[in-house]
Design a protein around this nucleic acid. Structure first.
Lengths: 112, 112, 112, 112
DNA sequence: GTGGTCTAGACCACC
DNA sequence: GTGGTCTAGACCACA
């Protein structure tokens, strides 16, 4: 996988997994690979992988069954959708609007 | 000044100065304060200030006159505007559009 | 290491590393020592080392893997060669030719 | 005048005056403008101008008549020619040859 | 372990 | 006075 240098890798992985849930590729109850397996798969240190899983767990997106593995929460898609929408609308939209104004751009650039 | 912890201080200073140029508060040819002066002003170490000036110089926004100080480039506003627009349109817009689609939102949220 | 006082140390280090790449001693993909290690090695502060690495990164000669270290870019040798040739031919050659003419010398002094 | 940022202004002025002597534009016995006059002319601080004259005086290229002004030395052209040739042949030529070898260039670039 | 940022303080050349 | 470089030492996030 190609990671961008500006953002921590573990957060980029969180984004990828969240997107897979949003798109329906991963569903509630699905097991996700172990940190070792997934880490080896995408060429990342298991510690880093672990941090991603911890973050997803803290956010209620996945949960752990001890000795078995990590699973997608039943309401994962709803949670991701709700959290991201809230974040997007409350934080990003105002920043984007301000920036567009400063740069003399208007929202039509999103329609093209 | 209040700095945000997510982004390096020296880059936040770059943003502030860029915005002052965009808004017309700083114009081509204007001298900007010395690293010591500006640093004392906003409670930042002169070395940190220097990093901001180095970045702005590398971007062609300001230039140095030896032993005298830093000055706003004649075409600074155009440069800032062009660079930021390019960055916004090429990098942010596609990411935003993709995210909106995934979240089931449309561009009308930017019109309200 | 012996540094010359006329040129900043961090740029002299950039030159040394560039030359090691040009000569083939360092190849694409090779890891270069950490700022602490290399710094201790040549008796220079890690911050100074960092400046050298920043410059090399900005020039596309090396790149960083987060938390791991710096690596020589795959096309580093080509980049160094191209950049230095360009600089030499466009900037130095005209200056040298002018100076030789003024001093009444000709290019045979380079053949001896 | 346009000064380059890499080299001290006072040395760039020394170069200009040396070149004017080499080219025959300034001859032995000619008076050169006062530091104030010359400085105003090229937009430079008189202190800076003074440093140039001091350097040229130390090198035996010009001399001062107290209360009258600075004059080009009778043997100025010979001195400049000798000093610059020595410097060029002993210091620059070896460096240039080494660099050309590293870059895979040959002296024909000076003939074109 | 790695880099990245920041502070404090110093020294220097230059204008 | 100005910037520019360098050191020392600290703290932090990330892998």
């Amino acid at each position: 996988m190609n990671f961008n240098t500006e953002k921590p890798i573990y957060l980029q992985i969180v984004d990828v997994i969240s997107d897979r849930i949003l798109s329906g590729e991963l569903k509630g109850g699905d097991r996700i690979p172990s940190v070792r397996e997934y880490g080896a798969d995408i060429g990342v240190n298991p510690n880093t992988m672990m941090r991603s899983y911890e973050k997803l767990t803290a956010d209620g997106i996945i949960y752990n069954k001890r000795g078995i593995g990590y699973f997608v929460a039943d309401d994962a898609r709803e949670t991701v959708l709700r959290d991201q929408r809230k974040d997007f609308i409350e934080k990003e939209v105002p920043a984007i609007r301000q920036r567009m104004q400063l740069l003399g751009l208007d929202s039509s650039i999103f329609n093209a």
